[in-house]
Amino acid sequence: MLSKITVSPAPHVSSKLSTRVVMGDVLIGLLPAVIAAGVFFRVRALAVIGVCVVSCVVSEWVCNRIRRRPTSIGDLSAVVTGVILAMSLPPAIPFSIAVIGSVFAIVIAKMAFGGLGSNIFNPAMAARAFLAASFGTLMTTWTVPSTVDALMPTISAANTSATTQATPLAWSKAVQKGQVEAHYINEQTSGAFWGKVGGCLGETSGLAFLIGGAYLLIRRTITWHIPAAVLLSAGVIALTAWLIKPEGFINPLLHLLGGGMLICAFFIATDPVTAPLTTKGMWIFGIGVGSLIMLIRIVGEYPEGVMYAVLIMNSLSPLIDRFCKLTPAGGTPHVK
């Protein structure tokens, strides 16, 4: 262990790695998904993303002014929050609500806690939770992607309009209740991969997030532990359920591709501020997120559990970090 560390006097090699570079990489990683959203939901999607990004950046600037701190919008973290929040909103969301969400994300979930690095919860997910609590109906009204012909019958929930379509995960609930046959939903697996299903902006195409995630991994912006832990634990639970009762649960592949699983694994759970720092901690965190997502999807009342899974594990991350403290080089210090 000691031999790997070289202690030397200056000059040191400096790295260009800064918050700005990391966030820039995340944005590049999100680009395929943004493009995909634009293809599936047309201008509407881009407008939602634009509104979220602009209002996040403006809120951050205003907060900095109020707190008399140097402007921190240059580190691009507000832009990333805006894009991720937009990705977790349904395309038909009114712009005013997107603005409320963005302001909540930056002002309450991030700046009120002390700004980037001090926030406990992922700002985009906290804001989405607030929106889901406040505007339940609007947050669960899914438009059909424009690239889809009306090949699937719409199941209309009791009090939503008829031009909407349930997401594969909402269908999966119907399967569990025996209202629809599982194979019918499983046919949507390729749709979930290419992007032919209803959902939030970032819930339609699995492929876009796989490309983006691969980019982040290659650039070493994120390490592979959290995505692997999330996807493995979720996959194992989905597979177990499916093997036990194939007619009662949907294809595990659809669980991994559908909903917010991939954006969560690569972009949300890997948020460096709200996830643990050590490798062991990352595994615990990732497994927690993946298992909670599947628990909520299979056992809970909600069709999708990414938001709550991430928020719950965020609140545990300081504890996980404490539990997985690294031993400093040279052994445990004698502290009384």
Partner: peptide, 21 residues
């Protein structure tokens, strides 16, 4: 039930969406 016609009066009650419990 989660889906159905609330206007039909019978032993089937359509749930409030988001408030199944």
């Amino acid at each position: 039930t989660k889906s159905g016609d609330a206007a039909v009066i019978d032993a089937e009650i359509v749930a409030i969406s988001g408030a199944t419990v």
